[in-house]
Deep mutational scan, measured.
Amino acid sequence: GSPGIQSFLPPGWEMRIAPNGRPFFIDHNTKTTTWEDPRLK
């Protein structure tokens, strides 16, 4: 199987799917959430 997208996120980050189907990202380091992919910064 191919590695999940989770493995490509920075340490402490998690990806979830919102009720509307959009992915969002949780930064457990700062306890914040964002719509922006942290890998694109």
Rank of each mutant, 00 (worst) to 15 (best):
G12Y: 04
P10A: 04
L40R: 07
L9M: 10
K31C: 15
D37G: 01
E36K: 09
P23Y: 12
L40F: 11
F25K: 00
T30P: 00
T32Y: 08
T33M: 15
M15P: 00
S2T: 14
E36I: 11
P19G: 09
R39Y: 05
T33P: 04
P3A: 13
P3N: 14
F24I: 15
G12H: 06
N29T: 10
N20G: 09
Q6L: 07
E36L: 11
I17W: 11
P38S: 00
F24V: 14
E14G: 03
P11N: 09
K41V: 14
F24K: 07
S7M: 11
T34C: 08
R39T: 08
H28W: 15
M15V: 10
N29D: 06
E14S: 07
T34E: 02
F24T: 08
S7R: 10
Q6R: 10
A18P: 02
P23G: 05
H28C: 14
R22P: 07
L40K: 10
D27H: 07
T30Y: 04
W35F: 10
I26S: 02
F25E: 01
T33S: 10
P10E: 04
N20S: 10
T34Y: 08
P3I: 13
H28N: 09
K41W: 11
N29M: 09
S7G: 15
T34M: 06
T34A: 04
I5W: 11
L9A: 01
S7A: 14
R39Q: 03
G1L: 11
I17K: 06
R39E: 02
M15N: 00
P10F: 05
G4R: 11
T30E: 06
N20M: 02
W13K: 00
T32L: 08
P19N: 09
R22G: 05
D27I: 01
H28V: 08
S7I: 12
F25W: 13
G21E: 04
L9C: 05
I26G: 01
D37C: 05
G4L: 08
I26Y: 14
N20T: 07
T30W: 03
T34I: 06
R16F: 09
P3W: 05
P3Q: 13
T33C: 15
S7V: 11
Q6W: 00
E36A: 07
P23K: 10
P19A: 12
E36T: 08
F25A: 00
P10V: 04
N29E: 07
T33G: 08
P19E: 10
E14L: 02
F8K: 15
W13T: 00
I5R: 12
K31R: 10
I26E: 06
G4E: 15
N29G: 06
P19K: 13
K41S: 14
D37L: 02
T30H: 07
F24H: 08
K41R: 11
P38E: 01
F25Y: 12
L9I: 04
P38L: 01
F24M: 11
H28F: 08
S7L: 10
P38G: 01
M15A: 06
I5S: 14
N20I: 02
T30A: 07
S2I: 12
L9Y: 03
P19F: 07
P3L: 14
H28P: 05
E14M: 03
W35V: 05
L40Y: 11
G21C: 15
T30C: 09
L9K: 01
T34G: 04
E14W: 01
M15C: 14
N20V: 01
W35Y: 09
S7C: 14
S2E: 14
P38V: 03
K31Y: 07
K31S: 11
S7H: 12
G4T: 10
K41E: 13
G21I: 00
N20E: 03
Q6M: 06
S7T: 12
L9R: 00
M15H: 02
A18L: 09
K41P: 15
P38R: 00
T30S: 09
I17Q: 06
A18F: 05
E14A: 04
R22A: 08
A18W: 03
F8N: 15
I26K: 03
D37I: 01
F8L: 12
T30F: 05
P10S: 03
T30Q: 07
P23I: 13
I5G: 13
G12T: 02
F25T: 00
L40Q: 12
P23A: 11
P3H: 13
I17Y: 13
S2P: 14
P10Y: 06
S7D: 15
G1D: 13
W35P: 03
S2D: 15
R22I: 13
R39M: 06
L40S: 11
G12A: 03
N29R: 07
T34S: 09
G1S: 13
A18S: 10
K31D: 11
T32E: 08
S2V: 11
H28G: 06
G12L: 04
R22D: 14
E36N: 09
R39F: 05
P11V: 07
M15Q: 07
K41G: 15
S7N: 15
W13S: 00
L9G: 01
P11Q: 08
A18R: 03
K41Q: 15
Q6T: 14
T33I: 15
Q6K: 12
T32R: 10
T32G: 04
G21V: 00
T32A: 07
S2M: 14
L9F: 07
D37P: 09
H28T: 10
K31E: 10
G12K: 04
P38C: 02
A18N: 07
G21Y: 01
N20R: 02
T34H: 11
R16T: 06
A18C: 15
P19V: 09
R39W: 06
G21A: 02
P19S: 11
I17T: 08
T34N: 03
N29K: 09
N20D: 14
G21S: 03
F8I: 14
H28I: 09
K31H: 14
F24G: 04
H28Q: 07
M15T: 04
R22M: 11
F25G: 00
R22H: 10
D37T: 01
K31M: 13
G1F: 12
T33K: 13
G1Q: 13
P23F: 10
S7F: 09
R16M: 09
E36M: 08
P23L: 09
R16Y: 08
P10I: 03
P19T: 10
G4C: 15
T34F: 07
K31L: 09
G4I: 12
G1R: 10
N29L: 10
F25H: 00
W35Q: 05
T30I: 02
D27S: 02
N20A: 02
G21Q: 03
F8T: 15
F8D: 15
L40G: 12
G1E: 12
R16A: 09
P11K: 08
P38K: 00
G4Y: 03
I5Q: 14
R16I: 12
T30K: 07
I5P: 13
K41M: 14
G21N: 05
H28R: 04
P3T: 14
D37Q: 03
P19I: 08
L9V: 02
T32F: 09
A18V: 03
G1I: 13
G12M: 05
G21T: 05
L9T: 01
A18Y: 05
F25M: 00
P10M: 04
G12R: 04
Q6E: 15
F24E: 11
M15S: 04
R39G: 06
F24W: 08
K31A: 11
E36S: 06
I26D: 02
K31W: 06
P23H: 11
T30L: 06
P38F: 00
T33W: 15
T33D: 03
P11G: 07
P3F: 09
H28S: 07
L9S: 01
I5C: 15
Q6D: 15
N29P: 02
L9W: 05
D37A: 03
I17V: 10
P38D: 01
P23S: 08
Q6V: 13
S7P: 13
I5L: 12
E14K: 02
P3D: 14
T34D: 02
D37K: 02
P11R: 06
L40I: 11
P38M: 02
P11I: 07
Q6S: 14
W35H: 05
G4K: 13
P23V: 12
G21M: 02
G4S: 10
A18T: 08
N29W: 08
R39L: 05
P23Q: 11
I17P: 02
R39P: 02
G1N: 13
L40E: 14
F24D: 04
N20L: 02
P19L: 09
T34W: 09
P10G: 04
W13G: 00
D37H: 04
R16W: 05
E14T: 07
I17G: 01
R39A: 05
E14N: 02
T32M: 10
P10D: 04
